[in-house]
Amino acid sequence: MKRFSVLSSQTETIEHLDNTKLLGVIFRELRQTRFYQEVWEEGYEEGRQEILDKLLPWIVALYLKTGLTVEQTAKRLQMDVEMIQRAAQSSGHNEGS
C-alpha cells in the first residue's frame, strides 16, 4: 500500500486520511504529472493572451491620446510597432505612425 506524508512528519495510509487531507494528497500528486503541467501552462498562456487582447487596445489608445506616436508607444510598452498599430486600429484610434 502506498504511504503519503501528510502535512506533518507522520506518514499515514489512505484509509486514515480525512477528505480534506486526501484531496490535498491527490492534488499534490496530480500537480506532479506532465499532463497537469502542460494543461496549466496552456491555460496560463490562453488567459494571458486574452487579457492582452482586451487591455492592449485600451492602453494604446490612452498613450496615443496623450500625444505619443505609435513608435513611442511601442518602445514604452516594449512591443512591436505592428502589434501597437493593430491595437490602435481595434481601439478605433487610427494613426498612421
Rank of each mutant, 00 (worst) to 15 (best):
L77G: 07
Q85Y: 04
T69V: 07
S5W: 03
I51L: 09
L77R: 08
Q49W: 05
L23R: 14
L55E: 14
Q32W: 03
T69D: 03
S5I: 08
S9L: 03
V25T: 07
A61D: 12
R34S: 13
R86M: 06
E45C: 00
Y63N: 14
K75Q: 13
S90W: 07
R28L: 10
N19R: 10
G67I: 09
W40V: 14
I26W: 04
L68P: 00
F27R: 11
K54G: 03
A74R: 00
W40S: 11
N94H: 14
S97Y: 09
L22C: 09
G43C: 11
S91H: 09
D80K: 12
E50L: 13
G24H: 05
Q37E: 11
S9P: 02
L55V: 03
L22P: 05
V60L: 04
F27V: 12
G24P: 03
T73F: 05
G47V: 06
L62C: 07
K65C: 06
V60Y: 00
R86V: 00
V70W: 01
E50Q: 12
Q72L: 05
K54Q: 10
E12N: 04
Q32F: 01
Q10W: 03
R76Q: 09
E45I: 13
V81D: 01
T66P: 00
E42Q: 12
E71N: 07
